[in-house]
Design a protein around this nucleic acid. Structure first.
Lengths: 156, 156
DNA sequence: GCTGTCTTGCAACAATATTGCACTCAAGAC
DNA sequence: GTCTTGAGTGCAATATTGTTGCAAGACAGC
């Protein structure tokens, strides 16, 4: 049911799928957008906006402004191909662009690796709580930090 | 099962309970700490650190530094009597200081009201996902934004 | 009174995010 | 072909949020 905690094993296809998804939704793929998406998939961990700014400036051979990065990230998040980790002010590529976005993010404090998993039961549970309160949910943030399997190997 | 979406109906007792909880855990209640807690309970919505800085500076009649506010908030969060809303960079008083902290926060985009509810099933669900990944959870963030019952009354 | 610890003050700074205005470029209208 | 329009981007300035390092004050235990 759950994804692997590693997500960088198929960045290539994921990137292409993400681009296809954006296009199919009428989004334009510019070099900056593609570069940011690529950088996110290439990264081993969530990236901050200013990390991306540095990365993109280097990759494109000119200074990219923070503004552009934020706009690009907004676009990618709207398209569902990236997600913001609120508790870290950082961004990750999103592996489930086509699904309604109710992912659970696991983020390792030690190595920074993040993993997204879908959980329909969780979604229903939250929906039930919301209904009880008469609350209509617009956006969900479910983030768990701790230690991933690779990191807390005690003695091996 | 769920709390009311309004939390300001019993700020007085809640405040006193929170103070008692801190004391019982060996925490010292200083005027600043008490003031911040009081401000959080008095507020109708999550407060930012700099809001609290202004509020406290006014209340105590002298300039309080951001540093002190952040330290105070750290203390209150550690004690479990306040909680940070990651998706807003803001803080709320916590209604369940004695429980293990796996609350679900509902925050209304329209009026800012926030409500915390306990949900044990959710906790188990997350624990199960975590186990499957070999992930040990250290900190949970479950925040839902949207529209509360009071705000999306359509026509009345 | 002395000592050690916890709390606070303060200044500087770092990191994150937004705003307003101008410019470019490509797609469609004429 | 030219014009218009709108999306995307650049850029400078600024706002907001959060941290660090060091010094001073408060207070309990001895």
């Amino acid at each position: 049911m759950a994804d692997s905690i590693k997500r960088a094993d198929k960045p290539r296809e994921a990137l292409e799928e993400a681009i296809a998804v954006c296009r199919s939704r009428g989004g334009k793929i510019t070099p900056l957008r593609e570069g940011v998406l690529k950088a996110l998939w290439a990264a081993e961990r969530p990236m901050g906006a200013y990390d991306l700014k540095a990365k993109m400036s280097e990759a494109l051979g000119r200074a990219i402004s923070a503004t552009s990065i934020y706009r690009t990230l907004d676009f990618l998040c709207e398209q569902g191909v990236a997600a913001r980790i609120e508790s870290r002010n950082a961004y990750v590529p999103c592996a489930h662009p086509s699904e309604s976005h109710a992912c659970v993010m696991f983020v390792c404090d030690a190595c920074g690796l993040s993993s997204e998993i879908e959980n329909k039961k969780l979604e229903r549970l939250l929906a039930a709580d919301a209904e009880e309160l008469g609350f209509s949910i617009n956006h969900r943030v479910v983030e768990l930090s701790g230690c991933c399997a690779d990191c807390h190997v005690p003695a091996d």
